[in-house]
Simulated assay, not measured.
Amino acid sequence: MNQEPNQQLGEIIEQFVHSFIAENNNIRSQKVINIADEDTIAHLREIGFPKKGRPVKEVVDEMRKNVYPHQAFMQHPRFFAMVPSPVSVYS
């Protein structure tokens, strides 16, 4: 069995995790919610679903650059929200 693709995927995942943790080291100084502007939303809608697959690293890099910055950071210490579990009477 060829281990090279699995090793490459493992390296991509490891790089992603390390960069994610590094970016969140100073999370207290970041905004809690980053709302995408109209141009960003239009760009994301244009991407669509490709007919042909792409390399995983390319997809991960695109997500980190174009998608992930525009979100609510639930791990932020000033993010006050309650998300009930499925077994909760509130859900």
Rank of each mutant, 00 (worst) to 15 (best):
R54T: 03
H70K: 02
P86E: 07
V67A: 10
S29F: 06
R45V: 10
E23K: 14
S29P: 00
Y68L: 15
P50M: 05
L44Y: 03
I33H: 04
K65T: 14
E58D: 13
N25Y: 00
A42I: 06
N2D: 15
S88H: 10
R78C: 13
H76P: 09
V59Q: 02
V87Q: 10
Y68Q: 12
V17S: 06
S19G: 06
Q30F: 01
H18F: 08
V60H: 05
N6F: 13
L9T: 10
E58K: 09
M74F: 15
G53Y: 11
V56Y: 04
I12C: 01
G53P: 01
E4C: 03
R45W: 10
E46D: 06
I21K: 09
D61P: 03
Q71G: 05
E23Q: 14
R54F: 08
R28N: 04
A72I: 12
P50S: 15
N6E: 11
I13R: 08
K57S: 07
G48I: 11
Q7H: 04
E14S: 15
R64P: 03
V60D: 00
D37V: 02
N6V: 02
I47G: 03
F20G: 00
A36P: 05
V89T: 10
A72F: 12
F16V: 07
M74T: 10
Q3S: 13
Y90S: 07
V60A: 00
E38G: 01
A81F: 03
H70Y: 15
Q7N: 06
Y90I: 03
M63Y: 14
N2M: 03
H76K: 02
P77K: 10
A36C: 07
T40Y: 02
I13T: 08
A22W: 02
Q71T: 12
Q7M: 05
S29G: 02
P86H: 00
L9S: 08
E11Y: 01
S29K: 13
N25H: 09
S85Y: 14
